[in-house]
Design a protein around this nucleic acid. Structure first.
Lengths: 341, 341
DNA sequence: CCAAATTTGATGTACGTAAATCAAAATCTG
DNA sequence: CAGATTTTGATTTACGTACATCAAATTTGG
C-alpha cells in the first residue's frame, strides 16, 4: 500500500498538522523538525496523491494559450486543437482560455504577457515570436513562479520550462536529404519558400536545410529565400514568378505555411517540369497535393500532440511533478502518399 | 462549476442514495425513478469525477502485459518500457504485471489468457500471435467484460477493444516508395528479410511493400522472402548467403527484427555494392548503421508510446470513459540520419 | 385492506489530502 | 523566572464519490 500522510507522521514521530505544514511549506516549523519530517518522507518513499490533493484543494488549473492571429491552415488547426482541449477540460478540472495576438508582433505579445503576470494563471503556453523583449517578459513570468511553455516556435535563451514543438533544424536537414535523395544526383537549383525569417522555426529549418544541401548534395544550389509571410496569395505570386524566370529549378522546399498558394503556382507553371517538392504541415490542401503527385513528401508537426503535450507539461509543472521526457518529445512526421493518417 | 451527485439529486427530485443506486447500477430502484435520474444526468451534463470515485473506492487498476520471450532488441525495448511504466505505476494507482510466453506459440498464449479469465484483472495487453484459437480466447475475455488491447501485432477478426500499434500495410507501402525513390529508376532485385509469416504485422508489411513495388516501380523485382525468425544469427547467415549468390540485388527491406545479423552481413558482403537498405525498428544497432551509411532509412514504432497508449486505453475502458482517438493512433516514425531522437 | 415486499430517504463513514482553529507545550527574551 | 513568542498537537471540516445501514414510505399480492 502506498504510504500516506499518516504514515509520515508516525514515522517522524510528529503530528499530522506538522506534516501538513512541512508538505505545504507553511510557516511555524522548527528547522530540526522540518528535517525530521523530510527524512521520514524520503525514507518511506511518500508521494503525494495528486488526485486527492486536488480534490481537497478544489483546485482547477487555469491555463492561457497565446496564439498568433494568422490566417493559414496550420494555425487554424492549432486553434481547433486548443478548442478540442477546452471541450475536454471540464472533465479534467482545467480551464483553458485562448488569447489571440497579431502575428510577428513582439510588442503585442509582451503586453499580453505582462498583463498575465498580474492575473497569475496556473500556466501559460505561447507561440513565441523570437525577440529579446519577449524573452524578458517570459523570464519575468518564470521568476514569478508561473509555468511557461513555448509552442511550435521556441524562444532563444529564455527560461521557459519546456518547448512543445519539433526540432526545426532536424526538420530542415531531413527535408534536404529527402530532396537530395529523391533527385538522385541531378544538377539544378532549389527554390525555398518561407514565411518570415523573424520566427525562429523558419530560420532553423532553413539553416538545417542549407547545411545538408551544401555538405552532401553539391550538385544542388539554393536560390535566395522567398518570404511569403505564410500568406497563400503572396506565396502564389512569388513562386509563380520564380518558376517563370528560372528554368533551372528542379526542386522546391516550402518550410512555412501558405501552401495553398504554392500548390496553385505549381499546378499552373510546373505540370510539365517534374519538380520534386517537399512541404511542411499536413492540411487538406497539402494532403490532396501529396496524393495527386504535386508534392512528394510532407513534413508535419501534429498540432494536437503539441497542445496535449503542453497541457500535460503545464499540469505537471503546476503540481511540481516530473514529466516523462520521451513522451513529450514532439516528433517530426514524414508523410508520403502511403502513410497518411 | 462541475455538477455533482448532489445536483443530480436536486434536479431529479430524489435523494442522494437513489442517485447513487442508479449511478452504480445497484438494485432497488423503480424503472420510472431510474429514468428520471438518468434524464437529469443527461440534462445537467453530469460526468463522474473519476479521481474522487477511485479515491472512494480505494481502487487500484491491475493490468497484465503478455509479451513474447524473443531475444531481439525490439522486444527488449518493449520490456524496458513496460518496466518503466511499472515504476511509475504506483503513483497512478496502477499495478502492472508482465507475463512472458514463448514466441510464435498460440497454444501457450491461449493457456495464459484462459487463466486470466478467472483472475479477472482490470485489463490485459498482449502481443498477439494471429491464430483463431487466440482470437477465441480474447473474445471470451471481452465477453467477460475485461478490457483487452493488442500490442504491436493485431488479431484478425477479434473483439479486442483497441490495437496499440502501427498500420503495418502502410509501413510496407512507405518502405517500398522510399526504396523506389531512393533508387531513382534503377533496375534490379530487392531482398526482403522477415521474421516469420505467422505474425500478422510481418505479413502485412510484406503485402504493402509488394503492392507498391509492383504498381509503381516495375523495374524492381522482389526475391523470395527470407525468414530469419527475428534471430540475429539466422538472419546473418541467410542474408550473407543471398548476397553472395545474387549479384543483381540493389536494395534490401528488412521488415522484422534481428537486424544485428543483417548489418553484419551487409558489412561483410556489400561494402562495395552501394545497396539501398531500409529496415524496421530503431535500436542501438540500426541507429549506428543509419549513421554510418549502411542503412538508408529506418521505419520505427515507438515502443514507449505503444505501452503508454495501451495503459491509457485500458484505464479508459475500465472506467467506461472515451479515448481520444487521435492521441492513441500510433504513428510510423521514419528516421533518416538527420532526425534521429 | 392488511401484511409482505419493494422502493426510497436520511444519515454516517471512508478514501487521502488541505486548511483552519484553538489549546498546549516548548523555546526565547529581557 | 515571568511573560511573550514560537512551535507543535489535536481536532474538525471539506472536496466528490462509494457504500452500508436503518427507518420510512410506497407499492404489490392475496
Amino acid at each position: 500500500m502506498r504510504p500516506t500522510v499518516h504514515d509520515i507522521a508516525a514515522a517522524a514521530g510528529v503530528s499530522l498538522a506538522t506534516v501538513d505544514r512541512v508538505l505545504n511549506q507553511r510557516p511555524g516549523v522548527r528547522h530540526v523538525t522540518r528535517e525530521k519530517v523530510e527524512k521520514a518522507i524520503r525514507e518511506i518513499g511518500y508521494v503525494r496523491d495528486v488526485a486527492a490533493a486536488n480534490l481537497a484543494k478544489g483546485r482547477t488549473y487555469s491555463f492561457v494559450f497565446i496564439l498568433p492571429a494568422s490566417d493559414n491552415s496550420f494555425m487554424h488547426g492549432l486553434n481547433d486543437e486548443v478548442r478540442a482541449a477546452v471541450a475536454r477540460s471540464s472533465v479534467e478540472r482545467t480551464n483553458i482560455r485562448t488569447v489571440e495576438v497579431p502575428a510577428f508582433d513582439p510588442g503585442a505579445l509582451v503586453q499580453i504577457l505582462d498583463e498575465l503576470c498580474d492575473e497569475r494563471p496556473s500556466g501559460i503556453a505561447l507561440v513565441a515570436t523570437d525577440a529579446p523583449a519577449v524573452r524578458d517578459a517570459v523570464d519575468r513570468l518564470v521568476q514569478d513562479g508561473i509555468p511557461v511553455v513555448t509552442l511550435v516556435s521556441d524562444l532563444t535563451g529564455s527560461q521557459r520550462h519546456h518547448y512543445a514543438g519539433v526540432d526545426n533544424i532536424a526538420a530542415g536537414r531531413t527535408a534536404a536529404r529527402l530532396l537530395g535523395r529523391f533527385l538522385g544526383g541531378a544538377k539544378g537549383e532549389i527554390a525555398v519558400l518561407a514565411g518570415s525569417m523573424l520566427v525562429r522555426d523558419h530560420r532553423e529549418r532553413l539553416e538545417g536545410f542549407a547545411a545538408v544541401i551544401a555538405a552532401e548534395f553539391p550538385s544542388l544550389s539554393i536560390l535566395p529565400v522567398i518570404e511569403g509571410r505564410d500568406d497563400p496569395d503572396m506565396a502564389h505570386m512569388l513562386v509563380a514568378d520564380a518558376l517563370s524566370k528560372k528554368s533551372g529549378i528542379v526542386g522546391v522546399y516550402s518550410l512555412g505555411a501558405g501552401n495553398r498558394g504554392l500548390i496553385r503556382a505549381l499546378k499552373e507553371k510546373a505540370v510539365d517540369r517534374s519538380l520534386t517538392v517537399i512541404a511542411h504541415e499536413l492540411t487538406t490542401h497539402t494532403r490532396a497535393a501529396l496524393l495527386d503527385g504535386t508534392i512528394d513528401a510532407i513534413l508535419n508537426q501534429d498540432a494536437g500532440h503539441e497542445v496535449r503535450s503542453a497541457i500535460r507539461v503545464l499540469k505537471a509543472k503546476a503540481d511540481g511533478l516530473a514529466v516523462i521526457e520521451a513522451q513529450e518529445r514532439i516528433r517530426l512526421d514524414i508523410f508520403l502518399k502511403d502513410n497518411l493518417p
